[in-house]
Amino acid sequence: MKLQDMISPLELKALTHVEDKEVEGIFISDMLSDVMSSAKAGDLWLTVQTHKNIVSAANLVDMAAIVVTHGKSVPKETVDLADRFHVAILSCDGSNFELSAKLHAIGFRPR
């Protein structure tokens, strides 16, 4: 599914420029080491972490985008870094679990 097409049904808010990428899977973790070891390229990454290191992790793994959940405010330095490296960051008010349920409802299945 295209990232752009997910914004409205999932009620996501774009914090950076969002390029039209294909989302191939979902990965949830709040630990960068897990992301580096287990996430796949093209995954949409759900996390409550907002530290600027998330941008580097997403960039290294080549993830489709980051969704910061639980309505966490994302520091400006994280957003600026993301824009610089063309990593999209979106946010949503729901928890990791709630957003998973919505993703499942719009047809996402574990790959």
Partner: peptide, 13 residues
């Protein structure tokens, strides 16, 4: 054995 998303999706079901 599931990852976090798989587990969430199955429980949500």
């Amino acid at each position: 054995r599931d990852d976090m998303f798989e587990a969430c999706a199955k429980i949500a079901d």
